[in-house]
Design a protein around this nucleic acid. Structure first.
Length: 516
RNA sequence: GCGCCUGUAGCUCAAAUGGAUAGAGCAUCGGAUUUCUAAUCCGAGGGUUGUGGGUUCAACUCCCGCCAGGCGUACCA
């Protein structure tokens, strides 16, 4: 049981009240605090004192419990703090995980970029977040698959093929066509393989390039689903809706009664020309996901997909699926700065920054870290020049360096024949050591926070803080010294910190180097 | 017009159910290394959290108005 739960149980047994325990930020207010005295009528300070008088002493966990300004502050005992070293040792690379998901099946769909171009910076953001969420949710006992939806139908593909054809013939691309350099490359390749189906050739080539980029980024998908396969399911979808009397013809198009399900207008499923609109296969696709046995679907989309959400959720409800089981996360755009100026992106015009270029110029770890430290909602600014220049000062190196330093300490200890000694950890006790122990205790709470909010940025923030505490400790105290017992104890602490740092980095999909 | 998102230090971003003195990195300035990696540490300056109200013992956080920006509001995808 985690310390927070132990505290909760203890307070509950003493007083019969249920407490909300929060972590404090200021050490003067203890390690944990509760504001319960504010939620009761009367003067908070009196309430706090009254509650305090009912609480039995619990020296195993708590050193001191006191009321201040109406808050009840709890100071952990040294033995409770030291206990975390054992927890980390026993749980190893599973420290912080627990089977909350109980094998519940989740399908995470993200990136799903059109195969009409290379992956760009915002795709990298979605890739980082999606991959991290998969790792965290798996860590928490869910069974998670990652899926990429390939839009291989529609006008855009025809346009891409036309653009390639124009390039082959040495002409300008048609109006609104794709002008990027990669189109020229596609044209050359198409000529050499003498492909007779230019559309299929272009899609296959672009998909494999995107796959390569993602693989270089350390992101692998379980499934790649093509819209052209999903299209086949649309007839059944329409039929199901027809049976429920939820469609009608108007102006020679087929409409879905989306307004019955909270949408502000009805939506066209089949256009006048007989083609499906974008949302039709999209609905069929999501139904197909549920039919494949997933309990929860999570989509990470760009803000340009906002308009799809109401008809999609509406259609799911219409067909008896709970739209609550479809969680849509919007990952905001990335504004790219180059030369201090906003760079207006346009794939068609060939104005974009390819994810490949970012990965090769600043590295995958730095790139991921930049994306994962920001909240999904932030409209982040990606300054290319600053990213290149500052990449050596990037906080991710600060964390990795702490990891490498610890590895180095272990190597030195080994050379000198000094072993980790868990039976001596009671020798730990200076401020820097205690701060590290307190931080380690919080790790499981941080991971669970990400599971709850689906917001990865808590992990990088936490790791930076943990690394900072380690660097401070390292500068002030020697781990490996002539004092064999103390060295053994500090090695035990170092190992615990290293372990947690390693888990955190692996949840982010970022490497943990033994040497730098 | 309406809907979603955003606005925090010079810059990029944090702030764990509303909680106590709003924190980091970069940049600027000053210090630290015969000892485990200086990609480090210690310290200084820098804030009316866009703005005006409201709720609350307590507001960056919740509610309303306003300003600014992104996106959506297609028989495009």
């Amino acid at each position: 049981m985690r310390i927070k739960e132990k505290i909760n149980k203890w307070l509950n047994q003493s007083t019969g009240m249920s407490f909300y325990i929060a972590t404090t930020r200021n050490p003067a207010f203890g390690d944990y605090t509760t504001n319960i005295a504010f939620s009761i009528k009367g003067n908070p300070e009196d309430n706090a004192n009254k509650i305090l008088s009912n609480i039995d002493h619990n020296p195993d966990i708590v050193d001191k419990i006191e009321s201040k300004n109406g808050f009840i502050n709890i100071f952990l005992s040294k033995s409770a703090l030291l206990g975390v070293i054992d927890s980390v040792r026993i749980e190893g690379d599973q420290y912080g995980s627990y089977n909350k998901g109980k094998g519940k099946k989740i399908l995470l769909e993200f990136v799903s970029a059109n195969p009409t171009g290379l992956l760009v910076v915002p795709n990298g953001r979605a890739a980082s977040i999606g991959d991290c969420l998969q790792r965290v949710l798996s860590f928490m006992g869910y069974s998670v698959d990652k899926e990429f939806y390939i839009d291989d139908c529609g006008r855009q593909i025809k346009l891409l093929a036309q653009s390639i054809r124009a390039r082959i013939m040495g002409k300008d691309v048609p109006e609104g066509g794709y002008k990027g350099e990669y189109v020229n490359e596609l044209a050359k390749m198409a000529e050499s393989v003498k492909s007779d189906n230019l559309e299929e050739f272009a899609v296959a080539t672009m998909v494999s390039r995107q796959k390569k980029t993602l693989s270089d980024f350390g992101v692998e998908f379980n499934n790649w689903v093509r819209e052209s396969k999903i299209i086949e399911m649309c007839t059944e979808l329409i039929e199901d809706l027809r049976k429920k009397d939820l469609i009608y013809k108007k102006d020679e198009a087929l409409w879905f009664k989306a307004t019955l399900f909270g949408d502000d207008k009805d939506r066209v499923l089949i256009k006048r020309d007989g083609e499906y609109t974008y949302i039709t296969p999209d609905i069929a696709y999501h139904i197909n996901k549920f039919k494949r046995g997933y309990d929860t679907l999570i989509d990470i989309l760009g803000p340009d997909h906002l308009g799809h959400i109401p008809p999609l959720k509406g259609a799911l409800e219409a067909l008896g699926y709970s739209s609550k089981n479809l969680i849509i996360l919007i990952s905001q755009w990335v504004t790219t700065l180059e030369g201090g100026k906003k760079k207006r992106m346009s794939k068609r015009e060939g104005r974009f920054i390819a994810l490949d270029d970012i990965i090769s110029s600043i590295g995958k770890d730095v790139t991921k870290f930049i994306f994962l430290t920001r909240r999904r909602d932030s409209h982040l600014v990606f300054d290319m020049d600053a990213a290149k220049e500052e990449s050596k000062d990037n906080p991710v190196y600060y964390i990795q360096y702490a990891y490498a330093r610890m590895s180095s300490v272990e190597r030195v200890a080994k050379e000198r024949g000094i072993d980790t000694n868990y039976s001596k950890i009671h020798l730990l006790g200076n401020r820097e050591e205690l701060n590290l122990l307190k931080k380690l205790i919080h790790f499981p709470e941080i991971v669970e926070d990400v599971e709850k909010t689906l917001e990865p940025n808590h992990i990088p923030n936490y790791l930076s803080e943990l690394a900072s505490l380690f660097h401070t400790f390292y500068e002030m105290h020697r781990v490996v010294s002539n004092d064999i017992d103390l060295s053994g104890a500090r090695l035990a602490l170092t190992q615990a910190v290293k372990n947690v740092l390693g888990i955190g980095l692996s949840l982010l999909g970022i490497s943990a180097p033994e040497k730098m």
